[in-house]
């Protein structure tokens, strides 16, 4: 293997500009984190709502929830990115479509975040549904018998317990969100993977570049994991198993 190592490359300036390669990767990391965290908020809110819909007695509501999950689960994320970026603006009214294409601020970021958020919401919905269904039937019955409305039963009894049950799969889904955000490079979001490819071409030090970027992704996954573990420990019901 004939490779010229140069670990000093990160301190060097890029070919056309004042910035260093380190600056590129740092700003890439920033966009990756911003996109993943915002998508996670969308996914958690929507996913919980859809998961709840799927456990209601109404056939229409649970059917709509199922359709949502199947739609977002059976199309590759990269294809969904292209759909949101290239196709959806064409389906909107003409003025809105023009505004999105020409004037919308941070267009790539908004599109990627929305896309990743909806994609992840389908997966969270499945976990929330499984969590609610894993609770003993008596929980719901008891809540209703105490005079809580259906909404109150979910809010005060079912969801607080179900979300604790699914902390482990939620943790890996949170880590997945960071990994999946790499796909946003394809619509031009200047996140880590985009910067990695850019730096590889610009500096021709591919291995150093990819090692650094891989370590940054590791770091994201590790921190995501620790944060979720902390939340899990803080919210544990005293006396429960696990």
């Amino acid at each position: 293997m004939n490779y010229h190592w140069n670990w000093g490359i990160f301190a060097q300036q890029v070919q056309a500009g004042e910035e260093t390669y380190f600056d590129w990767l740092l700003s890439g990391l920033g966009w990756t984190v911003a996109c993943s965290l915002s998508a996670w908020v969308i996914a958690l809110a929507l996913g919980t709502a859809i998961g709840v819909l799927r456990t209601t007695r109404s056939r229409t509501l649970s059917g709509a929830g199922a359709a949502w999950v199947e739609l977002f689960r059976n199309i590759p994320l990269l294809v969904q990115m292209f759909l949101w970026f290239f196709v959806v603006p064409e389906l909107l009214p003409r003025e809105l479509s023009l505004w999105i294409k020409q004037d919308m601020p941070a267009k790539e970021f908004v599109t990627a975040t929305l896309c990743l958020g909806l994609f992840t919401s389908a997966r969270i919905a499945e976990q929330v549904r499984a969590g609610i269904q894993s609770l003993p039937r008596g929980q719901r019955d008891a809540a209703l018998a105490l005079g809580l409305s259906s909404a109150q039963a979910y809010r005060h009894v079912l969801l607080p317990r179900a979300l604790r049950v699914i902390m482990a799969p939620l943790t890996s889904e949170f880590m997945n969100t960071f990994k999946n955000s790499s796909v946003a490079y394809a619509i031009g979001l200047l996140e880590l993977t985009f910067r990695a490819r850019q730096m590889q071409e610009d500096s021709e030090q591919g291995i150093e570049t990819y090692i650094a970027v891989t370590l940054l992704y590791f770091l994201c996954a590790f921190i995501a994991n620790r944060v979720m573990a902390l939340i899990e420990a803080r919210t544990r019901i005293p006396g429960s198993i696990g």
């Binding site: 880590m175 960071f178 990994k179 999946n180 790499s182 796909v183 490079y185 993977t193 990695a196 490819r197 590889q200 591919g206 291995i207 990819y210 970027v213 891989t214 992704y217 590791f218 996954a221």
Partner: peptide, 15 residues
């Protein structure tokens, strides 16, 4: 399992 598949693809293509 802890790095994005996209990075793995780029890694192998380079290495």
């Amino acid at each position: 399992r802890s790095i994005p598949l996209l990075m793995v693809i780029l890694w192998f293509f380079l290495v």
